[in-house]
């Protein structure tokens, strides 16, 4: 287990280094941050002076080292838009992001697992068709459209929940349900197919031949194996929710998450803020993936060694 853990940790660190290099190259080399910092009417001398002063004339490796040291210290510079250190501005958005993503994925899992199992137990039955259709609907519906429909139905027509905002569970319901639709669809599909796959395997027939009930065979044997692809997909959907793919829904419901912050940073050409946002999101993705790898190790003894 410890060798496995060390290997996964090593990969995570490699990914962090890779992300750092990418962020550095994009922000320091592709664009010209100095021009963006200066007023439009600044002269060539002022521009050169600023470059020199900000260290943009130093060798690239020196620049990267400085960037890395600052990043490790959590210093991404000050946000131009809000005139405050960038990192805390991102971190203060995290609770909202975690709350929304976590709630959505829990809603999705709680519904998708039973739905997928029911479909797998009676393939091609009416129940299976209904479950499959629900899944297809969930994953193909456009999230902003679903969000707008929910706003129309609940706050506008029925006076339930809120059209936008953050703070109470009633603010959370509609965006969470909206974002749960896609993972619900995809997870229930993978639950169905992986449970079906497992139920077809020899060890399941062998377990039945020892007199185990269908329930014991499913819960005690098949589901443990089926869990591996389910965990993979759930992890992927969760990182997607945390990594800002939720931005449209955040915008529809005015939810103050990191996705919306990134869009604001781009609109305002706030490079330090964008850097900090990208970096935080990348770290979240790395940590989630590491946790998923650990979960694999717990689920499957074959990869522990």
């Amino acid at each position: 287990m410890s060798a496995y853990l060390a290997r996964r940790l090593f990969y995570s660190i490699a990914v962090v280094v890779g992300v750092s290099v990418a962020v550095f190259l994009i922000t320091h080399q592709l664009g010209d941050p100095v021009r963006m910092l200066l007023p439009l009417e600044a002269s060539e001398e002022q521009y050169q002076a600023a470059r020199q002063q900000l260290g943009f004339n130093d060798p690239i490796l020196v620049q990267f080292a400085r960037f890395s040291v600052d990043a490790v210290r959590g210093d991404f510079g000050d946000s131009l838009w809000m005139d405050a250190p960038a990192l805390p501005l991102v971190l203060e958005r995290l609770p909202a992001t975690f709350l929304l993503a976590g709630t959505s994925i829990i809603i999705a899992l709680v519904l998708a697992v039973p739905l997928g199992i029911i479909a797998a137990l009676k393939p091609r039955s009416l129940l299976d068709h209904v479950a499959s259709l629900t899944a297809l609907l969930g994953l193909s519906i456009a999230d902003f459209w679903l969000g707008l429909m929910l706003i129309f139905i609940f706050p506008v027509s029925l006076g339930l929940f809120y059209t936008s905002g953050y703070g109470t569970w009633e603010h959370l319901v509609l965006p969470a349900v909206t974002l749960a639709a896609r993972p619900l669809g995809r997870i229930s599909q993978i639950v169905r197919s992986s449970v079906l796959d497992e139920l077809d395997k020899n060890y399941v027939t062998a377990a039945r031949a020892r007199g185990l009930s269908e329930q014991a065979t499913l819960l005690g044997h098949a589901l443990r194996n089926a869990a591996i692809p389910i965990v993979t997909l759930t992890g992927f959907e969760l990182t997607r929710l945390l990594a800002g793919f939720t931005v449209v829904v955040e915008a529809v419901f005015g939810w103050p998450g990191v996705g919306l912050l990134a869009v604001d940073a781009i609109e305002r050409q706030d490079l330090p803020l964008l850097q900090a946002d990208v970096f935080v999101v990348a770290m979240i993705v790395v940590v989630i993936n590491l946790l998923i790898d650990l979960l694999y190790g717990a689920l499957d003894p074959r990869i522990r060694y």
Binding site: T205, A209, G220, P301
Partner: peptide, 14 residues
């Protein structure tokens, strides 16, 4: 009953 393939007749995660 015991089966042909001992590689696949046991549950790999138990």
């Amino acid at each position: 009953m015991i089966f042909q393939d001992p590689m696949t007749s046991l549950n790999p995660v138990l």
